[in-house]
Amino acid sequence: MSTAKATGGPLQVPVVDIDGFEDGDTERRAEIARLVDRAAREVGFLQIKGHGIPEIAADGLAEAMDDFFALPFEDKVAYKPPTPEVNRGYTAPRDERLSYSLGVTSPADLFEAYNVGVEASKFADLDLPEDHYPANMWPERPALFERNVEEWMRQANKLANTLTRVFAVALDLPADYFKSYTDHSMDTLRMNRYQLPDGDVRLEPGQLGMGPHTDYGVVTVLWADDVLPGLQILDSEGGWHDVRPAPGALLINLGDLLARWTNDRWISTMHQVLAPVDSEGRPLLRRSAAYFLDGNADAVIDCLPSCLGPEEPKLYEPVTVAEHLAAKLAGSRSLKPNPNAGREASRLRSLSV
């Protein structure tokens, strides 16, 4: 995938207010789509305002995360999935290596996480495969964890689907173009905590909170603490740039499948999270929650005809959502370097030369 364009100065993540897209006039919709198109071409990340998600939902999510991650380790580890292929439940610190999703080896990542997602039972009439839509592993404690997390998922899903409509208009497609690819989307919410225990700040060379990666699906809705060091995105000149959420905004980034659809006209930007320690080596707390709209497991992703031309040859072969996600997850979770990410791997390796 291509990545954010260097501009000779600090890389700015555009702020776009989407209020009025669904019920505004044609001119307002076109202006929002134009701003999103520019951000998608140049940065691959946006800050979305006017998203309509009430603050109480974010507060409930943060409370659920804090209460769960504060549990004793032996309680949390009881919710580890039976195999890495089951993208649900608890991930302990140093269990994953996100750079493996790009085919690049690295030290173990330092974050811990909890995953929930869309279950096959939500679409009982479709007989969806359980391996792509596994059942959630809801912890018994904290008491309000399931309620608060499900509310955030509902809100994030609504925003993500609105964004697919914005994307369609920006690409000169009917507003509902992506609906048939996402109407039983295998979405996942990953809640992350970056905090090393006091006295445990030994880092291997190159060790990060979360290693370099691109997101795998269509679009990501990200709630994150405004804490530095933290999230960084890579520009086209090989420079890493800090990203901090603007007040009242949610971070949005495009995933690999949207880049494939647009033949890399839109960017799935490489990003990472720095180790959770300050400049003096003291542990820091940082939290984030990424809602991944990944698309239907059986959807075939192929280049949009409008993104092909004499000077725009087709960069990717068709792939199903399930095939693409399986290769990516086998890297990060099963530690089998992804063999299908050659261009991304060569770019990442070149940074250390």
Rank of each mutant, 00 (worst) to 15 (best):
S2W: 03
K5C: 12
Q12G: 00
V13D: 07
V16Q: 10
D19G: 13
G24N: 13
T26F: 02
R28K: 12
R28D: 06
Q47A: 08
Q47F: 03
I48W: 04
K49Q: 14
G50W: 12
G52E: 09
P54I: 07
P54R: 15
E55P: 01
G60A: 04
L61V: 05
F68C: 08
L71D: 07
K76D: 11
V77L: 09
A78C: 08
A78W: 10
E85F: 12
E85H: 13
V86A: 09
R97T: 14
L98Y: 11
S99D: 04
S99A: 15
S101G: 13
L102Q: 14
V118I: 15
L126A: 14
L128N: 10
Y133G: 07
P134M: 10
V149G: 05
E150Y: 00
E150K: 15
E151I: 12
R154Y: 03
R154M: 06
T164D: 06
V166W: 09
V166H: 08
F167V: 11
A168F: 07
A170Q: 08
D172E: 15
L173W: 08
P174A: 00
P174S: 06
D176Y: 05
D176F: 02
M186W: 05
L189S: 09
L189C: 02
R190C: 08
R190W: 05
Y194L: 02
Q195T: 05
L203K: 05
L208H: 02
T214A: 14
T214D: 08
G217C: 10
V219Q: 01
T220K: 08
W223V: 09
W223M: 11
D226M: 00
P229I: 07
I233Q: 06
S236N: 06
A246T: 11
P247V: 12
A249P: 07
L250T: 03
L251V: 15
G255I: 05
W261H: 08
T262M: 07
I267L: 15
S268N: 06
T269A: 15
T269N: 15
A275M: 04
D278Q: 04
E280F: 03
P283F: 07
L285K: 07
R286K: 10
R286W: 01
S288L: 03
G295Q: 08
D298E: 11
D298N: 13
S306W: 00
L308W: 10
G309L: 05
P313W: 13
T320M: 09
T320V: 11
L325Q: 13
A327N: 13
R333V: 03
S334E: 14
